[in-house]
Amino acid sequence: MSFSHLLLGILEPAPCHGFALKNAYDVRFGRGRSLGVGQVYATLARLQRDGLAELVGVESGDGPDRRVYAVTSLGVAELSSWLLTPEPPTGYAQSVLFAKTVLALLSDRPADEVLARQRVVHLERMREVRRLGQAGDLVSRLSADHEIAHLDADLRWIELAGKRLEHIAAEHGLSG
């Protein structure tokens, strides 16, 4: 994910200083992890160098003066282009869950138990994410929907893998 584009998107609605940008990022995308303010200022400097953001004023207050930045027209065009560019689909074949299941099968360990245990944890996480999303604002809810959809994809695969194992066991006359 391009951090500079994310910052451009947060900055676009109204000019603001680096610390306010950091706070806005933490609220919308931080997921409990706070962004270092140094990273924000370094990115703002790059955006300014590339003509995508510009310094539009200095805000004075109790503490040190704060430089206020805004997105340039070139920055708006760059942001629009980034938003409309599809992200490459991620490959999932190397997921740890997949690898564990295959290893369990190859070593004659009970793969169905690996899947069943994972299912419990996935469902519990799904329930937790749903609670967090329902307690929050629209962005929290969208974030929860996104995670739930991915957990659901895993769970569907677990179901299908379980069915395949049952079929294979039945074909070979194995029990369970």
Binding site: R119, L123, R127, R130, E159
Partner: peptide
Amino acid sequence: EAVVASHADREVVVRDGRLDLLAFPTV
């Protein structure tokens, strides 16, 4: 569907007419 079941406080699984205990082993 698991995504539907995740709305519930808890879930049980029925398989071949019996409660499936393997579906929810003690982790």
